[in-house]
Design a protein around this nucleic acid. Structure first.
Lengths: 223, 223
DNA sequence: CCAATGCTTCGGTTATCATCGAAGCATGAA
DNA sequence: TTCATGCTTCGATGATAACCGAAGCATTGG
C-alpha cells in the first residue's frame, strides 16, 4: 500500500525534502530525516519499489527524486488533509527531540529557532520574499554589516543563491538557507552563541545562555 | 500523520468501502474489513480523530461517512499512484486468507470468486454495465431461468436494486450485489455447491468439490 | 422491568517494522 | 595497488500498534 509508505515519519520527512523538486543524495536524505544511512537505505528501497521515487546514479552518489508531479500532488493533498483537521501537528522523527529546537541543515540553522529567525527577519523587513525569490533589503544589508559583521557583497557564489527558503521538516515551514544562512550560522558559532553538539554526526545545535539571549533580542518571536 | 491512518490495511478497507459515498455502520465496516467490532471501534476512533470520517448517531447505530469529497479525492489519488506503479497488489486484511477466496458480503458472494463471477457474466453478456447502472440482458434472464431456476421477475424489490456492483475489499474490484446477487448465492447454497463456514460469525464460504466444478463451468475465469 | 443489540473500553498477546552496529561492495582518488 | 567515501546488506533489538476476548454502557424492543 502506498499510503503506508508515506505513513512512516522518516519516509515522510524524506519525501517532504524532495518536494522542492530537486534531487538529493541518499546521505542528504538520511540527514534530513535524522536517521542513519543504513536505515535510510532501507526506506529508500521501499519508496523506490513503491514507485514514489527514482534513483539516478552519479559517481558514487545516488540521487533520488520524486517520480513525478502527481506524486507531489498527492503528498500535497495529504498535507492539506492534515492541515484541514488542525493536524499540522509536529511528529518528530525517530531521533532526538532536541533536533526540533535547533539543528544544522547542511550548513545553516534549522528547527524551531531557524523558522523563528526567518519569520523575524521578514517582519523586520531585513529580507523580502516574493513569489519565487527571496533577497536581502537595503536595510537588511546594513543590519548584517552592523550587527553581525557580515558583508553581503562577499556572499555571492557562482552556484548558490544568497538567500533561499528551505522547508523545515520538523516545523513544516521555511527557514533561511543559502550563503547568507550559512554565514549567519557561522557567525553564531564564532560568537559562541551556539555550537554543534559534540557527539559526532549529530545535527543538534546547542545555544549558550548568552547566545540564546542575544539571538532572542535580534530575532525573538513576534510581539 | 494522516497517511499513517490510511496506511493500515484494515482502515484502508473501511475507507474504500466508504468511497461509495454512502454511510455505513460500525459493524458493517468491521465486516467489510474482516475484523472484529472491538478492533473496528479503535480504528474508527482514530479515523475520526484524524478528521477523515465523521459519525452520525442514529438509534443504536453509528453511521460513518467520509468528511468530504476532498478526502475521497486524496484516497483516489493514492489508489492512482498504486495503480501507476503496477501495485494494485492485494494486501489481505488481518484475518483468514480464506476470506479472500470466497466470502459472504451481507447476502451475496464476494472475494476472488465473486469478482470472477461478475467478470464472467459481463463477458458472456448476461449483464450489461453502463456508466452508472448495471442490469440483466435478455440473454441473462434466460440464463438465470434455465440454468439456475431464478425467475428474474421475482427479483424486483421496492428498496433494493436487482443488480448492483459492490466494491470488493480484497480484490479492489467489483462483485455482484443486489437481489440477483443474493438470489444466486442462495441458489448456490440450495444446490449444495457452497455453504457458509460453520464457525459462527465467520464470513468464509466453502465450496464443495462438485460445486466448485459447476461454478467454474458457468463462471470460469477468462479463457 | 428484563433481554437483545450495537458499540466501546480494558488488558494482554503477538507481529510487524523501524532502527542501528558491523561488515560488505562498489566507485573514485592517491 | 591502497585508502576513503557513499551506499547497501545482514542480524539483532526494541517499540509501536493491530488484534481479540471479556466485560461494560447505551439504546431499543418486549
Amino acid at each position: 500500500m502506498v499510503a503506508a509508505l508515506v505513513g512512516d515519519p522518516a519516509r515522510a520527512n524524506m519525501l517532504t525534502a524532495l518536494m522542492t523538486g530537486r534531487a538529493l543524495t541518499a546521505s542528504e536524505l538520511a540527514q534530513e530525516a535524522g536517521i542513519t544511512p543504513q536505515t535510510a537505505s532501507s526506506h529508500l528501497s521501499k519508496l523506490e519499489a513503491g514507485g514514489l521515487i527514482e534513483p539516478e546514479k552519479q559517481g558514487r552518489h545516488r540521487y533520488y527524486r520524486l517520480t513525478g508531479p502527481d506524486v507531489a500532488g498527492v503528498l500535497e493533498g495529504l498535507a492539506g488533509l492534515a492541515a484541514r483537521a488542525g493536524h499540522m501537528r509536529v511528529r518528530t522523527g525517530p531521533k532526538d527531540p532536541a533536533l526540533r529546537r535547533a539543528r544544522i541543515c547542511y550548513d545553516h540553522l534549522a528547527g524551531d529557532l531557524g523558522v523563528q529567525m526567518l519569520d523575524s527577519m521578514k517582519r523586520q523587513k531585513l529580507i523580502r520574499q516574493t513569489k519565487q525569490t527571496i533577497e536581502l533589503t537595503g536595510e537588511g544589508r546594513r543590519f548584517m554589516a552592523d550587527t553581525l559583521q557580515i558583508d553581503a557583497n562577499m556572499l555571492a557564489h557562482p552556484r548558490r543563491p544568497v538567500c533561499k527558503a528551505c522547508l523545515d521538516w520538523s516545523e513544516r515551514r521555511h527557514h533561511l538557507a543559502g550563503t547568507l544562512g550559512a554565514a549567519m550560522m557561522a557567525r553564531f558559532t564564532e560568537l559562541k552563541w551556539a555550537a554543534r553538539d559534540a557527539t559526532p554526526g549529530s545535527r543538534v545545535v546547542n545555544f549558550s545562555r548568552t547566545g540564546e539571549k542575544r539571538f532572542a533580542a535580534l530575532f525573538g518571536p513576534g510581539e
